[in-house]
Lab assay of single mutants.
Amino acid sequence: MAAAAAAGAGPEMVRGQVFDVGPRYTNLSYIGEGAYGMVCSAYDNVNKVRVAIKKISPFEHQTYCQRTLREIKILLRFRHENIIGINDIIRAPTIEQMKDVYIVQDLMETDLYKLLKTQHLSNDHICYFLYQILRGLKYIHSANVLHRDLKPSNLLLNTTCDLKICDFGLARVADPDHDHTGFLTEYVATRWYRAPEIMLNSKGYTKSIDIWSVGCILAEMLSNRPIFPGKHYLDQLNHILGILGSPSQEDLNCIINLKARNYLLSLPHKNKVPWNRLFPNADSKALDLLDKMLTFNPHKRIEVEQALAHPYLEQYYDPSDEPIAEAPFKFDMELDDLPKEKLKELIFEETARFQPGYRS
């Protein structure tokens, strides 16, 4: 834990890192770190609560700039109880001085990944967590956004079992017609939660990839272990087919990539493993919904509104309290091709509203 900075004593240090967030945020305490930044909790002297502050230093890398800009653009436009918001952003007053960006968010005690390492969940908890994931996802999908990296560590939890989806750095506007060349190379989302079509096709992607990830998360809540822990690309596919069985001819016809289709045709026939054999203690309604989410063919996979209306979630289902976005989200430009200098300018502009004396 960093010592509390005395008023006016300059930035606090946390594990050798400068955290320049005073005077409003003090009493910093280390939480963890990701690929390009550290997260601390801090005391907000204005709202009198502890908050989470993520320090991001992305400006050396085009990919990190892209992810940072995506996350900020999306989260500043989203407003939903099951999606983490941005409360404040701290950065230098000029673009030349801006080396880091500090993002202030609600402090959540833990995440689903940490929880599943230590606790076996009751059916009631599984049901409530799944409902909140789908409630947040309904809003995301209504904005025409794909999260693309749903996994237990991106689901934040607090002691009252509130759940918030975080990390929109890989999110995209849904565009089933656009052929994202190089899709697989830039697709760094965790393999275990990846839909089979991501490994088999490169053309376009749809909201059904997020539903697949939610199915993987439900299976993990039922058993405290990942359902498809593939060691590499082909191993991942083999794990999936080992449980779902061989795809039907109709399902194979959806695979545009001939090499991928021929690979699947070359494999020995596998039978589907019954879900109640894998999860003998699970609620039968939970397994019915799991089956509809972990469907090989993305066109037959359940959609988020149908999933919310499934009998497993009937005690929570309330369409009048499951809000959607006001308007579909649009990125003005494809960020993939922009140089990091341009992305830095866009991050600077996007964060201006939090600067003292800002006038829109």
Rank of each mutant, 00 (worst) to 15 (best):
K73G: 04
A143Q: 07
E96N: 14
I302F: 00
S246V: 12
I133M: 10
P93G: 13
I240F: 00
T190V: 04
M293D: 02
D210Q: 02
R225P: 07
A5Y: 15
R50V: 09
Y128N: 01
L278C: 09
Y205W: 03
H239D: 02
P356F: 15
L130W: 07
T181E: 05
T63A: 08
G215L: 02
L278Y: 11
L155N: 10
R191K: 02
P93V: 13
V145I: 10
T351Q: 14
I53A: 14
M108I: 00
C166N: 07
F331M: 15
F129K: 06
L69P: 06
F296A: 05
L338Y: 12
K164C: 08
T118K: 04
G8A: 10
I89D: 08
L267Y: 13
F19G: 03
L252M: 01
D149T: 07
L222R: 03
L264S: 07
S284L: 06
N201V: 09
L170K: 04
Q355L: 00
L116E: 06
P176G: 06
K151W: 02
F296H: 05
L346K: 10
I90H: 14
Q249R: 06
G245L: 02
Y128I: 06
L278G: 08
E326L: 13
K55Y: 07
D111W: 09
I240A: 07
D288F: 07
I86R: 09
A42G: 13
M333T: 11
T206H: 02
E314N: 15
A4L: 05
L290W: 04
T68Y: 10
I255R: 06
A309E: 15
L157D: 01
A309T: 01
P323N: 15
L222C: 06
C65V: 09
L234Y: 07
A309R: 11
N201A: 10
S29F: 07
E197R: 01
I347W: 02
L163F: 11
Y25T: 09
G204Y: 09
A282W: 14
S208H: 10
E250T: 15
Y358V: 10
F331T: 14
V18P: 11
A42T: 00
L287T: 12
S284T: 01
A9M: 15
K55F: 11
Y131M: 14
F354K: 07
S246A: 10
R225K: 12
C166G: 13
E350V: 02
I347F: 01
L69G: 13
Q249E: 08
N45L: 10
C254A: 10
F348I: 01
K272W: 07
K272D: 11
T206Q: 03
S320K: 10
L244R: 15
K300Q: 09
S142G: 13
G169M: 06
T118R: 08
R91L: 01
G8L: 06
E345G: 14
E349D: 00
M38F: 11
L170H: 03
D44P: 10
M108N: 12
K270A: 13
D336K: 07
L134S: 01
Y263I: 08
A174P: 05
A260G: 06
M108E: 10
L69I: 08
Y317I: 12
A171P: 03
S153F: 06
Y113F: 01
D167T: 04
H299N: 00
Y131S: 11
G245F: 04
D44K: 13
L290N: 03
L184C: 02
D177L: 06
F329C: 12
E250A: 12
F78Y: 00
C40E: 12
E341L: 14
C166V: 07
N297Y: 00
N281V: 11
K117P: 09
Q17W: 15
S248R: 10
A6Y: 15
K151F: 02
C161W: 09
S208G: 13
I89G: 13
